[in-house]
Simulated assay, not measured.
Amino acid sequence: MVIRTLIVDDEPHAIDILKKYSANIPEIEIVDTCNNALKAFQTIQNSKIDLVFLDIKMPRLSGTDLVRSLKKPPMIIFTTAYQEYAIDGFDLNAIDYLLKPIPLKRFLQAIDKVMHFLNGDKNDQPVAVSETIMKQPANHFLYLRIERRLIKVNTKDILWIESVKDYIKVITAEKTFYTKQKISVAEKLLPVGDFLRIHRSFIIPVDKIESYNPNYIVIKEEKIPIGRNYKLICAQKFNPGNDMLYSPE
């Protein structure tokens, strides 16, 4: 039995780990690797793929949206750092849902589920997904490296995050933290659905928004600009069905 496998992740290290683990399984043949879901869509359309290790939070098109776009998706094992996506994984009938960093033991358990599925045991439930939902923490923290220390910031306290050259500012009601990090990295570490990128330099918590304008949003009486490339997604989220307010200028 040969399981033609595709690895999709925008982090090269994550791809390397899965390739290393897969090398221990003679049945797995890595057909290709992709760093975005659009390329993965093309690969799936043009090649016979039995199994996909699929990251969820990726630029432009998420892993879950990729699966929804396929009429007959292959077997899916979601690989992500975010517990919040577990419900989506369950709804999309994923074989399994692996939280990063992925231990080898947990990887092997997922492959065992794949083998059971291929051998006709179609009724296996993705237990790991259900367990992940039950264990989801009430609080979520962002860890910031500041002066050789890791500072823990509760994401519920964040008012907005701003990119300044090679640094980001994490603004809370009590304090502003500066750390050398790309805003795109910080975006990946935030709870899904709770935060929104509205500008190449700004991420905001949705529940802190006091008012919305096509060109800016207001949090704590501060106007935070909405970038040109983010106006449409903001209009769709904050004022759905009213295209009159959307202006690309």
Rank of each mutant, 00 (worst) to 15 (best):
I226N: 00
P205K: 05
D194P: 02
I183Q: 03
D194R: 08
K175Y: 10
E221N: 15
Y212C: 13
N213V: 05
D194V: 03
R228E: 09
V218N: 05
P240D: 09
I233H: 07
C234A: 14
A235R: 12
K223W: 05
L190M: 10
L196C: 03
N215T: 12
E222D: 08
I226W: 00
K220E: 13
K237A: 10
Q236Y: 05
R197N: 03
D194G: 06
K180E: 10
A173I: 12
K208D: 07
R200N: 15
R197P: 00
E222M: 11
V192Q: 07
T172F: 07
L189F: 00
V192T: 13
F195G: 05
F177E: 10
K208E: 11
G241L: 06
L190R: 00
L232H: 10
P240H: 09
E221I: 06
K223Q: 15
S201E: 02
I209H: 02
P205C: 05
R197G: 02
T172K: 11
F195P: 04
R200L: 07
S184G: 11
L232Y: 12
I209Y: 01
K223A: 14
I224F: 03
N239R: 14
K182V: 08
R228S: 09
V206D: 00
I219H: 03
F177K: 11
K188L: 10
E187T: 06
L189Q: 13
V185A: 14
R200W: 03
C234W: 01
H199T: 01
F202R: 01
N215L: 12
V185P: 06
K182P: 07
K237V: 10
N229Q: 12
I204T: 05
L190D: 09
I198G: 00
Q181D: 13
T179V: 09
N213L: 04
V192H: 07
H199R: 01
Y178E: 10
I198P: 00
V185D: 15
R197V: 02
R200A: 08
K180M: 13
K180T: 12
N215A: 06
V185Q: 14
